[in-house]
């Protein structure tokens, strides 16, 4: 199939126009997006994650994440039935290239994808001294890299280890929930690349989003609920040993 861009435009005007706005990359180009009409979160289904690392690679590609740092990563848990409190966890290179075979025998084994929880009461935005990180009106915790002074207080304040200092820009960096994609009607890079649907972008303000049905019918948990961060990264089938 060989098609020029012009042909695409001729053949599929509607799709092509949408694509134009996607590539133009300006919020004016997605005029239908209203900040006040969304409240973003994400659903992770532990029982579906196969630890392939597709999400980690996709995130790094989409967002140009520097080597050795992670906006998302995957952990592998081994929980012995004799010692629930002390799981054995590994995440070689953030699970970017998948996982080697298990070393431990028996017990309970599973993968846990991790990323920013886009907390509604985020401790990281609370501590920013200058207002360089914030939760947007549509519920995404973002960093203004033009304004960040690089003090790293937010990195200390995140209970989930989701932030790092980008060594090139010397500013704090984290998952943006692919803000440049979700504001254009696309899903996040990690969700797009996940082969099993273990990750689902969720718009909690949209009544027709399947998240509502899911939250009603499943026992859903967030990480470190005692931190009272208002985390919006919901886990289905999360084991109590995960921290």
């Amino acid at each position: 199939m060989n098609m020029s861009r012009r042909q695409v435009l001729l053949l599929l005007p509607a799709a092509a126009v949408a694509w134009e706005s996607i590539l133009a990359g300006t919020p004016e180009a997605s005029p239908n997006y209203k900040l006040t009409e969304h409240w973003w979160g994400m659903l992770v289904d532990i029982s579906k994650c196969i630890g392939c690392g597709n999400c980690v690679r996709a995130c790094a590609t989409e967002n140009n994440v520097p080597e050795g740092y992670f906006r998302t990563w995957v952990e592998r848990y081994h929980v012995s039935d004799f010692n629930q409190a002390e799981p054995v966890v590994d995440s070689p290179d953030g699970g970017k290239e998948g996982f080697p075979p298990m070393l431990e025998e028996g017990g309970k084994n599973f993968f846990v994808p991790k990323m920013c929880n886009h907390c509604a009461d985020s401790p990281c935005t609370q501590v920013c001294p200058v207002g360089a990180t914030f939760i947007s009106p549509d519920g995404v915790v973002l960093v203004d890299k033009q304004y960040c002074i690089g003090c790293r207080y937010c990195i200390q304040a995140c209970p989930y280890g989701c932030r790092f200092l980008n060594p090139k820009t010397e500013t704090a960096e984290k998952c943006t929930l692919c803000y440049h994609r979700i504001t254009k009607g696309l899903t996040t890079a990690c969700c797009e690349a996940c082969p099993t649907g273990a990750r689902q972008l969720a718009d909690l303000k949209n009544p027709s989003d399947p998240i509502h049905e899911f939250l009603r019918t499943h026992a859903v948990q967030v990480l470190k609920p005692h931190m009272a961060t208002g985390a919006k990264l919901y886990y289905n089938g999360l084991d109590g040993s995960v921290r």
Partner: peptide, 23 residues
């Protein structure tokens, strides 16, 4: 919108897309 640069939202949204999306 709050204690931050309002234009930062648009700047972050302006990042180019790398995965086209299956649609």
């Amino acid at each position: 919108y709050g204690h931050y640069r309002g234009t930062a939202i648009a700047e972050i949204a302006a990042q180019p897309v790398v995965f086209a999306g299956h649609e």
